[in-house]
Simulated scan of single mutants.
Amino acid sequence: MRHYDINKSNQPSDSRSMRTKSENKNSKIRIKKQQTSGSNTLTFENEKKSRNFMTGERFTYKKDNSYIERERERENRRNNWRQKRAVDVEDIDDDEEYYDDEYDVRSWRFRLLKKIIAFLLIIMVVGGSASFIYVKSIINDMPVLTKKMVLESYINKEPVPLSKIPKNLQNAVISIEDERFYSHKGIDYKSLVRSFVNNLTGNMTQGGSTIDMQVSKNLLTSNEKTLKRKIQDMYNATVLNKIMTKNEILEAYLNNIYLGKSTYGVQAGAKLYFGKNVNELNFGQSTMLAGITNNPNLYQNYEQAKKRQAIVLYKMYELGYIKENVYKAQLYRDTPFKSEIDK
């Protein structure tokens, strides 16, 4: 319980100036220790002299034991909080050190990644510009391609119209040489990417030339395996699709394809391997002749040609040109060459 003793006295007229000088002055603390039976009890008195701010009268403020205990508990709590806060600050400093190190690593990686990306972009821009200039210079040196130029470049001087070439032979050649012939505009980009990946990762090389590009190679450019010739064939293939129909391009291909033993065109090939005109070929003979176009020096051998025929038949079945029963029946059916019959 708090006790207040207020000693009233008259204040002088200048009490306000005197009050400002005597405010907030603490009195002495008297601590008395009283001995009681069975225990020691500490009694505290804290007298604080101050002045009434309204009247200017002096009074003495006494603090009892319970107040002192509460003050001491508060002080202990404050000390404990300060100690805990000090430990937390140390932990925070350690964590900040750790996060700073981790941030430095991440920042270093991010800067390195930015440099790599910038370097690659520069290479792409420079390489793309150089490639464009190189391709442009090759195209500018090429003559203007016309349909007449293609017809005059025929190797086979006795071509046959596409209408006299069996449909099975046409479908077989398209299946094995250029399955998307009727859908692309001279360049099959999907086939080019696949061939590029296979050439990098596989043991065997694979071309991505379309029938249009092969017409260019057979009639307009050369057989040189150079980047320049490849660019020329790609450009010619796109131009062919502008000046000719797909059937005209296919006809030019079938009439000038090399089939071995100095033979060009499917008419001459039918005579060589089967002793008959191309329009007289049956289904099995058409698929055999279509398989030879890939490598005539190898597939002019009957056993090798028969293995190649199986691949041609499967592609035709896969693309929907023939039914499953036709595919399986022809696999086990003999289709002898003329040379085999003459033995």
Score class of each variant (00 low, 15 high):
residue 212 D to A: 13
residue 240 L to V: 01
residue 331 L to E: 08
residue 304 Q to D: 01
residue 214 Q to H: 12
residue 286 S to E: 05
residue 103 Y to E: 12
residue 233 D to K: 11
residue 141 D to Q: 13
residue 255 N to Y: 01
residue 128 G to R: 13
residue 56 G to E: 00
residue 302 Y to N: 01
residue 161 P to T: 08
residue 110 F to I: 08
residue 3 H to Q: 06
residue 92 I to L: 14
residue 262 S to K: 14
residue 146 T to G: 07
residue 290 A to G: 03
residue 284 G to V: 01
residue 43 T to V: 10
residue 28 K to M: 10
residue 83 Q to F: 12
residue 28 K to Q: 13
residue 239 V to N: 10
residue 333 R to Q: 15
residue 286 S to H: 03
residue 13 S to D: 07
residue 199 N to S: 12
residue 286 S to L: 04
residue 282 N to A: 05
residue 208 G to M: 00
residue 68 I to M: 09
residue 286 S to D: 03
residue 106 R to C: 05
residue 108 W to F: 09
residue 139 I to V: 15
residue 15 S to G: 02
residue 155 I to G: 06
residue 321 Y to P: 02
residue 87 V to H: 11
residue 125 V to P: 00
residue 26 N to S: 14
residue 251 E to T: 11
residue 38 G to A: 08
residue 61 Y to T: 06
residue 270 A to N: 07
residue 292 I to M: 13
residue 193 V to G: 03
residue 179 E to N: 10
residue 128 G to V: 10
residue 340 E to Y: 05
residue 96 E to S: 02
residue 30 R to P: 00
residue 69 E to Y: 06
residue 330 Q to L: 03
residue 305 A to E: 00
residue 16 R to P: 03
residue 128 G to D: 04
residue 194 R to A: 14
residue 275 G to L: 08
residue 185 K to Y: 02
residue 89 V to E: 11
residue 186 G to W: 11
residue 296 P to R: 11
residue 195 S to Y: 07
residue 2 R to A: 09
residue 164 K to D: 12
residue 229 R to G: 04
residue 222 S to I: 02
residue 194 R to S: 12
residue 193 V to L: 14
residue 157 K to Y: 02
residue 247 N to R: 12
residue 222 S to K: 07
residue 336 P to T: 04
residue 91 D to S: 06
residue 24 N to L: 05
residue 82 R to W: 10
residue 21 K to F: 15
residue 44 F to K: 07
residue 95 D to N: 14
residue 274 F to W: 02
